[in-house]
Nucleic acid binder design. Structure first.
Lengths: 146, 146
DNA sequence: GCATAATACTTGACATATCAACTATTGATG
DNA sequence: CATCAATAGTTGATATGTCAAGTATTATGC
């Protein structure tokens, strides 16, 4: 009836989506009391790692774990919360540089512990070697069309 | 500075999210010409597997790979496209039974091949044993808070 | 058997995501 | 140096997702 992929392939694909959904929902639940989303949190972490210069908008987009066409508005929301500051580059006036604010850094500092705890909890069932193996295997999932 | 999780844990978590994003975007791109989303496709597949009786709304929600609070409107859209039909149960008038239409079945039939190809392409870098191992490892990602 | 609780959705308000078109600026070419 | 293309982002329209509250119906406990 159906031109299915082999069971192990289908199982792998479904397992990836399920696991990601668990992560996304638990991450969302964790961050919700702090008033930010998972994507906003990821931007903040990227900008913390890019201090003190910061990064221009599209570079942030390129570094995101999930591709996000709506990067401008995502950052708009962080700016509205005073967690990120933006200013237009003088060298290339098309670019906009984004930096994390002290307030943004303080928020991240409060979040580091619970986020790390969540990461650990989510893969707690796996010993270290298996976690490494998992990352290796997932690296084979290719980004672009074959 | 940061109360980070161990590198292998963080790497595993990020790898899951990245891989899932690849799947989601490629799935979206594949289905877009057919006018349905990944979640709508998943509902159709669930309903194909539940013929001929169909399923009531919340049972569909429970079987979804990604949890979706907005199941009613998701199905609204499938009904609007005549891919799913709904009717209120006579036995328990709170329930609404959903069934896939012949048109929905024809759409799925056209999609089976390309979707299977995508599944295969996405994990093409992995031999069968590794795909199985991947699914096993991901099964350890737990749904509920520890 | 009547009130209360639980179930199964539904709906409205609002946040977020996505796509396409648009502006501003810079680089490349003749 | 004027023009055309490319880059970097922004904006508007629209689709979709999410949460809270509401409605209809059925089950439960006195």
């Amino acid at each position: 009836m159906a031109a299915d992929s082999p069971p192990h392939t289908k199982a792998a694909v479904i397992a990836i989506m399920r696991a990601a959904d668990v992560l996304r929902r638990r991450g969302t639940a964790l961050l919700e009391p702090y008033g930010i989303t998972v994507q906003q949190f990821n931007v903040l972490r990227i900008l913390r790692g890019a201090r003190p210069e910061g990064l221009c908008t599209l570079t942030i987009a390129a570094r995101m774990i999930e591709q996000t066409p709506g990067i401008t508005r995502l950052i708009d929301r962080l700016v509205a919360k005073h967690l990120v500051a933006r200013e237009r580059s003088e060298e290339d006036r098309r670019q906009v540089w984004c930096r994390i604010t002290p307030q943004g850094l303080r928020l991240l500092a409060r979040l580091d512990r619970p986020v790390a705890d969540l990461d650990r909890a989510v893969v707690a069932g796996l010993p270290r070697a298996d976690q490494e193996r998992l990352a290796e295997l997932l690296a084979a999932v290719h980004r672009e069309p074959a």
